[in-house]
């Protein structure tokens, strides 16, 4: 099963099992979603529950907040993270604050899904990885499923959560094949996961950089360096203890994050490891991030801007 199919399976299961759940966004119905995640769902559940909306990010996120307040369990699909910026006021000033500002009177059980990341030659207005920005905001949860199992399990977990949950689906992952236990329900959304065991170095990553990092780990193995790969999975609230356990074993850390380096989520992970795991470290924490430029279009330019397997390998060798 692919990552995309796993998301669809999650959507279907949620729509079937909970009458409060409905999906809305642009092109989610007749078209089946810009990334085909909701294909077939309009036919199965009808236009009330799989709703093509007018083209207005701010309004479908804002109306999602309203519907959640009104007793529903809305899933809002925003085509890409770049376009979610048109709805940012609804996220930062409203979804994230309402519970707190109201003295705990209001709850917003809202799930917002969107594609993130580069690698498909879509240039500066469709390719950025802004999940790290979202992770800066208290009051929302931020998930970055990087496996087929998490693609479905995290969506179901988001729908059980009483707070707004933002799910960032890296667009390069949609066609990825993987295992899925059909009966597995909601995934845990409190912990990071070790995806590969190793003793020599800890590679911490999340989302679309996980496959690249695992590939780098394989190449490193052929150079007799055993890397442990940790998938952060949940950026907020962040599970630092899984990182620390690994660092205590390997004493070296490289963080791979597709966002821009300055102020990146990699910087946050690095700071926390420095604060809490300084004594374990034998080398400074290293970061591999995107070049700090708007994402270019041409293939070789985009490759030059994005973290690559070769750079991960080289960085580890240089530690």
């Amino acid at each position: 099963m692919t990552y995309r199919e796993a998301i669809r399976a999650g959507l279907r299961e949620a729509l079937r099992s909970d009458p409060r759940v409905f999906l809305m966004g642009e092109d989610v119905g007749r078209y089946g979603g810009a990334y085909a995640c909701s294909r077939g769902l309009l036919e199965e559940f009808g236009p009330e529950r799989v709703r093509d909306t007018p083209l207005s990010e701010s309004t479908f996120v804002g109306a999602g907040i309203g519907a959640a307040l009104g007793g529903m369990r809305p899933i809002v699909e925003v085509m890409t993270v770049n376009f979610s910026l048109l709805a940012l006021d609804q996220v930062v000033n409203n979804a994230a604050t309402l519970r707190h500002m109201s003295g705990g009177q209001f709850s917003i059980p809202l799930a917002v899904r969107m594609a993130t990341g580069g690698g498909r030659q879509l240039a500066a207005q469709h390719s950025h990885s802004l999940e790290g920005w979202y992770a800066h905001i208290p009051g929302i949860k931020v998930l970055t499923p990087a496996t087929v199992a998490d693609a479905k399990g995290m969506l179901l977990a988001a729908l059980q959560d009483p707070d707004p949950v933002f799910i960032f689906e890296h667009a390069m992952l949609y066609p990825m094949e993987g295992e899925l236990d059909e009966d597995a329900g909601a995934a845990d959304i409190s912990q990071a996961r070790v995806r590969r065991q190793g003793n020599d170095v800890t590679l911490i990553t999340f989302g679309g950089s996980l496959p690249k990092t695992l590939e780098a780990a394989e190449q490193l193995a052929s150079l007799e360096i055993e890397a442990e790969v940790v998938d952060a999975r949940v950026l907020r609230p962040l599970d630092i203890s899984t990182f620390l356990t690994s660092v205590a074993k390997t004493h070296r850390v490289v963080i791979v994050d597709e966002a821009w380096r300055t102020g990146s989520f990699a910087a946050e992970i690095s700071a926390q490891i420095m604060e809490q795991g300084f004594d374990h470290l034998d080398a400074p924490v290293a970061r591999i991030c995107a070049a700090e430029v708007p994402m270019p279009y041409a293939k070789h330019l985009e490759e030059a801007a994005l973290p690559q397997v070769g750079i991960i390998v080289k960085t580890v060798q240089g530690l």
Binding site: E26, D27, T53, P54, L55
Partner: peptide
């Protein structure tokens, strides 16, 4: 049309 969304769905 706006991709798959017809004009009637915009206004």
């Amino acid at each position: 049309w706006a991709i798959s969304v017809p004009r009637e769905r915009q206004t």
